[in-house]
Design a protein around this nucleic acid. Sequence first.
DNA 1: GATTGACTCTATAGTTGTTATAGAGTTTAT
DNA 2: ATAAACTCTATAACAACTATAGAGTCAATC
Lengths: 136, 136
Amino acid sequence: MIKIGELSKVTGCSVQTIRHYEKEQLIASAERSEGNFRLYDEVAVEQLLFVKHCRSLDLSLPEIRQLLGLSRSPGAQCDDVNRMMDRHIEQVEARIQELTKLNEQLRMLRRSCSNRRTVEQCGILRNLSATPVSSG
Amino acid sequence: MIKIGELSKVTGCSVQTIRHYEKEQLIASAERSEGNFRLYDEVAVEQLLFVKHCRSLDLSLPEIRQLLGLSRSPGAQCDDVNRMMDRHIEQVEARIQELTKLNEQLRMLRRSCSNRRTVEQCGILRNLSATPVSSG
DNA sequence: GATTGACTCTATAGTTGTTATAGAGTTTAT
DNA sequence: ATAAACTCTATAACAACTATAGAGTCAATC
């Protein structure tokens, strides 16, 4: 059994984050020592790594909670899991599109000013004052 | 002179957001009517649209404040504006790269499960339990 | 003149996923 | 006994809003 500091080292999650996940029910409530310290075993390490992996894929805490719920009802069809993943993938792709558009606009704006002018002539500031392109 | 509700309609910023921008010093403090209502003129509309345009380019409120400061000191070189834009563009591109990688991982994960299995056999859940790929 | 409805005011809390802090208690080593 | 390193809970901060409560203002109608 290890304490929270060691779990933090092993998993790469900060101590506060681990406590936060416990409060949010993403990992099981830890056993406590006599002195009220949280104690973890190998299973807890695996659970936390699962959550961490999900977070690295930008799944939200409620989404992760849902996945955990599904994985605990083994008879369920995994259509639900797939639906969530599909929705998530859509969101990520939409965000990539947004940012790509944004990037083009930023680069265009940046080209409108070459250095060594005073801001009075600065094309960037002038363009920012103009009415923005339709926000997509 | 128009009141905040009208300014909101004209600019597409919510009333609360306008008040928020005022508190954060992104727009000038509005004049007040006898009854303490904020009053705005054409200049205020332009200022708010400038801020809105910057926000649509994902510039942070502090960044916008900095731009406003620069635009108010007309003798200054616009190198500073350019530096900020360059940094911002870098950030956006880094984020695009991150999300693109993420998207690949999600799609790979998604392929690991075809529908109509029970979650016991679900490739997605199985893969999420495995040690994650190095987090970029 | 009183009331209604639409608007505005301030101040405060909620959102998301952490991170940081304060103030206290516990363990381990010296 | 004491210090260092750890842990505990509870609370606030971050960003950029959004939402709410409770009160005040204004124009129009009865």
